[in-house]
């Protein structure tokens, strides 16, 4: 769609503008265009980083203690370690969260619930596995009731080993996740 189709402009300026480009696109197409087009342009240019920047700095996590690591998660979210500094705030409902912290063992009885919680979270979402239990079953590796292969069920982005990991390690994992969000290297494209 040419610019002159939309508003009548003096011919001289019209010619001039049609020569201008932005990100290799004619300016005229950028200014008077559809939402889809805008999205395409955002994808192409450095402006896309704004989204990642926003996502990276507001990773709310789900308050969902499941094991010993859950207690460390409490502390991580509270004043002494203050995850708030990194924009990481505990929320109580999956509908408001971006990060699922898998803080302990997943049992056969809890797995369907956990899947539900994960499905309830809006995209884009990330998952951090904390502690040996969430990674591989940990000390309960031979229990009849524990799921050892959590990574087969959930797309885990960051693994934080330890039993339990210290809150400092939580912070490190979080920063790694933010780095990942910034690079847009995670598994889902959005």
């Amino acid at each position: 769609m040419g610019i002159s189709d939309v508003i009548p402009v003096p011919v001289a300026i019209d010619d001039e503008i049609e020569k201008w480009t932005i990100f290799g696109q004619p300016v005229a197409e950028v200014w008077f265009t559809t939402t889809e087009k805008i999205h395409q342009i955002i994808e192409m240019g450095p402006i896309k980083n704004i989204f990642n920047w926003g996502r990276k700095n507001s990773v709310y996590f789900l308050m969902q203690p499941m094991g010993c690591c859950g207690v460390e998660m409490f502390v991580f979210g509270a004043a002494p370690y203050d995850s708030d500094r990194f924009g990481c705030i505990p929320r109580n409902t999956p509908r408001q969260t971006d990060v699922m912290i898998m803080s302990g063992y997943i049992t056969r009885k809890y797995l369907p619930v956990f899947k539900n919680l994960w499905e309830e979270m809006p995209e884009p979402k990330w998952c951090i596995a904390i502690g040996e239990c969430a990674i591989s079953g940990g000390p309960f590796y031979d229990s009849y009731n524990i799921i050892q292969n959590t990574a087969d069920y959930f797309p885990i982005d960051v693994f934080i080993p330890g039993c339990p990991p210290r809150p400092e390690q939580f912070l490190e994992g979080l920063i790694n996740l933010q780095e990942k969000i910034k690079q847009r290297k995670d598994k889902r494209d959005y």
Binding site: Y105, T107, K109, Y110, V113, P139, F140, D142, S143, Y144
Partner: peptide, 14 residues
Amino acid sequence: VGYIHKGIEKIMEN
């Protein structure tokens, strides 16, 4: 209850 039943008593036997 039992959502985080790990079977500790059984594991300790092993």
